[in-house]
Amino acid sequence: MHWKIGKVRITKIVEMETVGSTRFILPLATNEEIQKLPWLIPHFATEEGRLKMSIHSLVVETPTRRIVVDTGLGNDKEGRKVPTWNNRKDPFLETMTAAGFAPDSIDTVLCTHLHVDHVGWNTRLVGGQWVPTFAKARYVFGRTEYEHWRDHSDESDKLAVFNDSVKPIADAGRADLVASDARLGDEITLIPTPGHSPGHMSILIQSEGEQGLLTGDVAHHPCQMEHLDWSSTADSDPVQSAATRRELFARFADTPTLVIGGHFNAGHIQRDGDAFKFVALG
Rank of each mutant, 00 (worst) to 15 (best):
D274R: 13
L190G: 11
V166T: 02
R138E: 15
D235Y: 09
L114V: 00
G199Y: 13
N122Q: 06
L228S: 00
R124N: 14
P168L: 07
I188L: 06
D272V: 12
A243P: 03
P63L: 06
N31P: 12
R271V: 07
F249G: 05
F252L: 09
D70Y: 10
M16T: 14
A242M: 13
P168M: 05
R245E: 11
D90S: 09
T84G: 12
V119Q: 05
F141Y: 15
T215F: 02
Q224A: 03
I41F: 00
L258W: 00
I25N: 12
K77S: 03
G212Y: 01
L248R: 08
L37H: 06
W130S: 07
E147K: 11
S54W: 06
H148W: 14
L37A: 00
K167W: 03
A135C: 10
G74Y: 02
C223S: 08
A219R: 03
S105T: 14
K277R: 15
I106L: 12
H118D: 12
H56L: 09
K158N: 11
K136F: 09
V166N: 05
D90P: 10
D186R: 15
A170C: 04
R174P: 07
I269Y: 08
D90Q: 12
R66L: 12
G72K: 01
A135S: 13
E247G: 12
S54V: 00
S180N: 15
E94G: 11
G199R: 13
G185I: 04
G79C: 00
D90T: 04
G20M: 07
G262W: 03
D229F: 01
F44M: 04
S197C: 11
D104A: 15
K52M: 00
A234K: 14
D229L: 07
L26N: 09
P168A: 08
T46Y: 01
G100S: 10
R271G: 09
N75C: 07
F24R: 15
A98Q: 13
D171K: 03
V279S: 06
T30M: 06
F92E: 00
L228G: 02
H148K: 05
T144C: 04
E47H: 04
K4G: 05
G6L: 08
T64F: 12
P194E: 03
G49A: 09
L184E: 15
T233K: 02
E15N: 01
M96N: 04
P42N: 05
D117P: 10
A172L: 02
P238N: 08
